[in-house]
Write a protein that binds this DNA or RNA. Structure first.
Length: 101
DNA sequence: GATCTGACGAAAC
DNA sequence: GGTTTCGCCAGAT
């Protein structure tokens, strides 16, 4: 496979853009949607290297604990504006706002 | 080509 | 609820 990241970015972003406003999805959920259920770390890495924030709702992607990305400070504010509820300053209420796919 | 690292996940403790 | 260990894949060194 010589095509590398370009293909991964397409798959991941295609899944990310399906996340409805006011909801959040875990990396594992995205990974599963792209057919790589154990490849959640790739989702995060690809988003970090890509500059697609603004074109895709990558702020709606959080980890399994509802914790936000360590290098993505604006993420919390964006989610609050969309109506996502928080349990703590850095923890999303997964029970209420996790994407039901 | 081997090793380490990473916006992670799940299970075990 | 938190920490520890392991697993997974792709990129960087």
């Amino acid at each position: 496979m010589t095509t590398l990241n370009e293909d991964l970015i397409y798959e991941i972003l295609s899944a990310v853009e399906e996340i409805p406003a006011g909801k959040v999805a875990s990396y594992g959920q995205i990974a599963q949607l792209i057919g790589k259920d154990r490849n959640a770390r790739l989702v995060g890495k690809v988003l970090s290297i890509s500059d697609y924030y603004g074109e895709y709702p990558c702020h709606r992607v959080v980890n399994h604990a509802g914790r936000l990305a360590p290098h993505f400070t604006a993420q919390r504010e964006r989610l609050l504006e969309e109506g996502v509820t928080f349990k703590d300053r850095n923890h999303v209420d997964m029970k209420e706002c996790q994407w039901d796919c």
